[in-house]
């Protein structure tokens, strides 16, 4: 569904991505792992268009979308849940979610999406009138994910959704990711620091290091290889 071919990008004069390759299969969870500074977030941002690609290809549903502006990618069904909680703190939970339905296509199915988000996160329904900035960390993360779901995506890219959450909430977050795959049928590209949980949830795993993808394989293969685990995942 999404293919990344020899993508290059960076910030200013500093190149961060050195031609990684990646393929995210439809309806599956593809996990992207790697140490800090490997370029995982940059890869997502470049695929999404918030960081300008220097070279290489991003192919989505068989179409070359490398240079497509971000808002058009959202219309085509790509969604990104950015790292850290980028929500609108002074808007209520409901307003935050409504903003997700900003593109015309998404507005058409707003009610259905809202129901979906509330069924996935019943907590948000209870708190729909509260200001998003006053929610707990876990709830804020739910809002960011919920808001991304409101854009009616086909493929959702999650950048460290469990960052800064309590262990219990981390488990819940991974359950949610699984639910998004199984119940909604989304294609998921997951970036995580939490290697073990991420490998358990994944259908396929890529490992990034120094700006490029070094290994890829089925989760069992990664789990069994002591070499890979010790070298890149540290556990």
């Amino acid at each position: 569904m999404l293919e990344v071919k020899e993508l290059e990008s960076g910030y200013g004069p500093m190149q961060v991505l050195w031609k990684p390759n990646l393929y995210a299969e439809k309806g599956k969870i593809t996990s992207l792992l790697g140490p800090n500074g490997a370029g995982k977030s940059t890869l997502l941002a470049t695929v999404f268009g918030s960081v300008k690609p220097w070279g290489g290809h991003v192919i989505y549903q068989g179409q070359e979308v490398t240079q497509l502006p971000t808002h058009k990618k959202v219309n085509a069904g790509l969604a990104l849940v950015p790292e850290g909680k980028h929500l609108f703190p002074n808007m209520s939970v409901y307003e935050n979610l409504s903003m997700g339905a900003y593109p015309k296509k998404a507005l058409a199915c707003k009610d259905a999406s809202l129901e979906l988000v509330y069924s996935l996160f019943p907590r948000l329904k209870e708190r729909h009138k509260q200001k998003a900035g006053s929610l707990s960390g876990g709830e804020q993360q739910m809002v960011t994910i919920g808001r991304a779901l409101m854009t009616c995506p086909k493929l959702i890219m999650l950048d460290e959704p469990s960052q800064g959450l309590a262990p219990l909430l981390v488990d819940m977050m991974f359950e949610t990711v699984l639910k998004m795959k199984e119940e909604i049928g989304l294609t998921i590209l997951l970036v995580e620091q939490n290697a073990r949980a991420s490998i358990d949830a994944a259908d396929y795993v890529y490992i990034m290091h120094e700006g490029t993808t070094k290994f890829h394989g089925l989760p069992e293969k990664i789990r069994e290889s002591d070499k890979i685990r010790e070298a890149y995942l540290g556990s």
Partner: peptide, 23 residues
């Protein structure tokens, strides 16, 4: 109108607004 929603979103958090598919 939609213009106002877009402006409010970008005022609150420009990165988040971009992620929403707002130009």
């Amino acid at each position: 109108s939609k213009i106002g929603y877009a402006l409010t979103a970008l005022r609150e958090d420009e990165d988040a607004a971009k992620v929403m598919g707002i130009n």
